[in-house]
Write a protein that binds this DNA or RNA. Structure first.
Length: 270
DNA sequence: AAATTCTCCTGAAGGC
DNA sequence: TGCCTTCAGGAGAATT
């Protein structure tokens, strides 16, 4: 499932292949994604030069002079750059062609999105209220501590709230809480600033390590070159119910917190 | 306001 | 072999 490391891995994979190139054609095979893919994209983009590929949260932003194409991979999406004559496979919904090369979006579950924004893309309703980037200096323990005061929600869904900090999905929330020694169900308003500092550092460390490994591939995720990510083998608790805790040997527990599957060590995480 | 629940969708896995 | 059920999950929308 694409979380921040997978999206950043994708960005780094596709950017050098398409930045500075002109769009030759746009193909929409399936417009029923999370929201309808704008039908006017072919007219809007054909002949235009792609200036830059950036990322905000889990959104990829393809900047043109007259606007920005916003891409989201949902939970099963992947982007690859393939030769333009490559036949589309099942679930290949959207192509951005650059002469001989093609940026292709595949998304079996269609939770992803392809959107267009004319004005500053960061003002888009989906991007406007997002919290800080986890790998930036704007994200730190004091920030988590301040936002959590007086709230009773469990720390795990708190950490996964995009208004608090972006890009931390279920996998990395589990991993970061394990690394920080914090129980995922603990009320977020009852965690000290000291412990939040440790959590913020854990979030940064886990995300950076995952980026370094090309992301986590559980089922669908692929890097832009088609290879899987290699962080799955580094996961300490996610998907490891019943296996021994890497620290103390106690069995890893699994339970649902905030509608999401949570994995943790009941002894190491308090 | 904050917290919880519902929703979209397909494929994998398990039961019979 | 095959059909049915259940589960997973990003994140906005709806509801409590």
């Amino acid at each position: 499932m694409p979380e921040l490391p997978e999206v950043e891995t994708t960005r780094r994979g596709i950017a050098p292949l398409i930045e500075g190139r002109r769009v030759s054609a746009v193909v929409i095979r399936e417009s029923r994604l999370r929201w309808p893919v704008p039908e006017r994209l072919p007219e809007l983009l054909s002949g235009r030069k792609l200036l830059q590929v950036t990322r905000r949260a889990k959104y990829l932003l393809l900047r043109f002079t007259h606007g920005t194409l916003i891409l989201h991979l949902g939970m099963s999406g992947s982007l690859r750059v393939v030769p333009a004559n490559t036949p589309p496979a099942r679930h290949d919904h959207f192509d951005l062609l650059f002469g001989d090369w093609c940026l292709r979006l595949r998304d079996p579950r269609r939770f992803g999105a392809v959107l267009w924004m004319e004005e500053d893309s960061l003002l888009h309703p989906l991007l406007r209220s997002l919290g800080p980037e986890p790998l930036s200096t704007q994200f730190h323990g004091a920030h988590l501590h301040r936002l959590s005061r007086g709230r009773r929600i469990a720390v795990k869904p708190f950490l996964m709230d995009g208004r608090v900090v972006v890009g931390v999905g279920n996998i990395y929330a589990n991993e970061a809480l394990f690394q920080a020694g914090i129980h995922p169900a603990r009320a977020c308003g009852r965690i000290s600033e000291r412990r939040y500092e440790r959590l913020a550092e854990a979030v940064k460390a886990v995300l950076q390590a995952a980026i370094d490994q090309g992301g986590t591939t559980l089922q669908d995720f692929r890097q832009a070159d088609g290879n899987p990510g290699y962080f799955a083998q580094e996961l300490q608790v996610y998907g490891r119910a019943g296996q021994p805790c890497p620290h103390c040997g106690n069995p890893i527990r699994q339970r649902t917190i905030g509608q999401r599957s949570s994995y943790y060590c009941g002894r190491c995480q308090r």
